[in-house]
């Protein structure tokens, strides 16, 4: 008889984790360090880092992810701030307005954006990077607004009043109190935007008419004919995201309890 304890209740998820998360990861790891005959090799990684085209694609992907995250942060922070401080009766409608795009299918939205950018005259090879960034910002902005909004709205107003009482002007209150207190929200926003914008390739495919490539495209193109190389690229991507997450984690661990949770 299995004893019912918290430990046992975890079994279903542990099984799920083992089967669908850990096992595929191990397979990818194995494939990335072997050649098509199953022999151990570093060749897949050597090939990736030895080819200027792959490195360029890699740098572009990184640049797109960083730019998208920064732009989202710049756009979302004021919005979230205004939303959090506005009167409650209007607030829900406003939040709804910003989150509603997420209710519409992502591919449809990108298809619509494709037509719109065409109308605006953004055609041709040179616009691929710009269009991809626009598309990513458009798509992932709600993922930045929501965590920011939830941290800002939970913020203890008395702290801000105390800051003012102690002689801080509005600017100082904002930069010395509001921003540091909302760091957990910023961190989870960055996490939520950076990760998908590093891996997503539908946006660049549709908007650039498949003339601009990100790492996701490399994986997609190679996985049919060369699983080993595709796996190696996936591992590189995983490591990069891991490093960035480590960076953000250093900010996060200051105050675990005040994380931008709630809606997430």
């Amino acid at each position: 008889m299995i004893k019912l304890s918290r430990k046992n209740l975890v079994i279903p998820y542990a099984l799920f984790l083992a089967l669908f998360v850990v096992a595929p990861l191990l397979v990818i790891l194995y494939l990335s360090f072997t050649d098509s005959n199953g022999a151990f090799t570093f060749g897949n990684f050597a090939k990736f880092f030895g080819d200027p085209t792959y490195i360029t694609t890699f740098l572009y992907s990184l640049a797109i992810a960083v730019l998208t995250t920064l732009l989202c942060l710049l756009l979302a922070y004021p919005v979230a701030y205004i939303l959090a401080r506005s009167k409650w009766n209007k607030k829900m409608i406003l939040v709804l307005l910003f989150v509603m795009p997420m209710w519409i299918n992502f591919v449809l939205r990108i298809a619509a954006l494709r037509e719109l950018l065409n109308l605006l005259g953004l055609v041709g090879q040179s616009t691929g990077f710009l269009k991809t960034v626009i598309g990513m910002v458009y798509d992932f902005l709600p993922f930045m607004i929501l965590p920011l909004y939830t941290t800002l709205i939970k913020m203890d107003k008395s702290v801000l009043e105390a800051a003012s009482d102690l002689g801080a002007n509005n600017r100082q209150v904002f930069f010395k109190a509001v921003v540091p207190l909302s760091l957990p929200g910023i961190v989870s926003g960055i996490t939520m935007v950076f990760m998908p914008s590093m891996t997503c390739y539908v946006v660049s495919d549709v908007l650039s008419e498949r003339t601009f490539e990100v790492l996701g495209n490399l994986i997609e193109r190679n996985y049919m004919d060369n699983w080993n190389f595709a796996s190696a690229i996936a591992i590189v991507l995983l490591v990069i995201i891991g490093i960035v997450m480590l960076f953000t984690y250093r900010f996060e661990d200051h105050d675990v309890n005040a994380r931008g949770g709630g809606l997430w």
Binding site: D51, P52, T53, Y54, I55, T56, T57, L59, Y60, R210, T211, F212, E213, N217, L218, R221, N222, D225, N226
Partner: peptide, 22 residues
Amino acid sequence: RNQALLDMWGRVKGSTLPAWAI
């Protein structure tokens, strides 16, 4: 020759920055 063609196609589809820029 499949892999050689795929690699060639990869270079066409992607873009390549000069080495100094990288």
